[in-house]
């Protein structure tokens, strides 16, 4: 039972963190919880489908369909995160003003919410297919251990939800006027992390051989598979043995998103932009 719990928990851990961060980022935007829940539900449904067609997906692209699929959905998630950040940079001021005045939920937020629902879906989908296949294996094996393994898996899923809750409640303790700056920063790192992981999958698929040398090995300082290693992997994109390409993609994304967000925030401050809305 403990084994099943650990396997499932490890897989849902990353998705749990992402969900927690995005819930906090969209706090006080009306309907955000529904969008995020929709993203989770979509991700779960997608996971089951993906597990079912795992063989077919694997056969694509000369046997590297899994890797290309991962690279693709991660790239989509990166675009959505950047979009959300820029939207927030543009509307952050009005949002803050509205919150000061009314203290109520903001209505106009559906566009980045759809983007974030997609990010949540991707986060769930990526690890969810593994959980689905693992649990399918348990069902297939049957026998005495069946109930105990199933219980362990469910407990693992519940713990993943706890990670979301802890992340969320930790973040919303931050005073409201700083919360959006903090979540924008977190999302910038999340985007860079996902972009570099997307690049890593292209390398694993053998589609990119450029800058493939290992940039460094820090596994002796922080093991990527340890608890802290996993947190850092998800939140800032820590990799213990990244390729040079991964490092480059990470830095380019980080700097580009930061620059775009900054420029958009400045643009939003001009009176014309406020009037044109």
């Amino acid at each position: 039972m403990l084994g099943a719990l650990i396997i499932v928990f490890r897989e849902v851990f990353e998705a749990g963190l992402v969900v927690g961060i995005l819930l906090a980022a969209t706090k006080l935007v009306s309907g955000s919880r529904w969008w995020i829940a929709g993203g989770v539900a979509g991700g779960v449904a997608g996971s089951v489908l993906l597990a079912f067609f795992a063989g077919a997906v694997s056969r694509w692209a000369d046997g590297f369909g899994q890797e290309l699929f991962d690279a693709g959905v991660l790239a989509v998630a990166v675009v959505m995160l950047i979009w959300h950040n820029l939207w927030m940079a543009h509307h952050g001021r009005e949002l803050a003003a509205h919150l000061m005045k009314a203290g109520s939920e903001v209505e106009d937020g559906s566009r980045p919410l759809a983007a974030l629902a997609i990010v949540v879906g991707v986060a769930v989908l990526r690890e969810g297919a593994e959980v689905a296949l693992f649990m399918y294996g348990i069902v297939l094996a049957g026998g005495e251990s069946w109930t105990s393994l199933a219980l362990g898996s469910v407990a693992g899923l519940a713990l993943g939800a706890c990670v979301s809750a802890l992340t969320y409640f930790g973040l919303v303790k931050i005073p409201m006027r700083h919360l959006f700056s903090v979540t924008t920063l977190l999302i910038t790192f999340l985007a860079a992390a996902m972009a570099s992981q997307s690049a890593a999958f292209l390398e694993k698929a053998g589609k990119v051989s450029w800058l493939s040398a290992t940039a460094w090995d820090t596994s002796w300082i922080l093991d990527e598979n340890s608890m802290l290693g996993r947190v850092m992997h998800t939140m800032i994109g820590y990799a213990q043995r990244p390729s040079e390409l991964q490092v480059l993609v990470y830095l380019v994304t980080l700097l580009a998103v930061a620059a775009l967000t900054f420029a958009t925030a400045r643009h939003a401050k001009t009176p014309q932009a406020a009037a044109s809305r």
């Binding site: 990166v78 979009w83 997307s198 292209l202 993609v249 380019v252 958009t264």
Partner: peptide, 16 residues
């Protein structure tokens, strides 16, 4: 915004 986001993502995962 979406165009800028897409361009950034494509640039950053430029593949050969």
């Amino acid at each position: 915004i979406l165009a800028a986001a897409t361009a950034t993502a494509i640039l950053s995962t430029a593949a050969f």
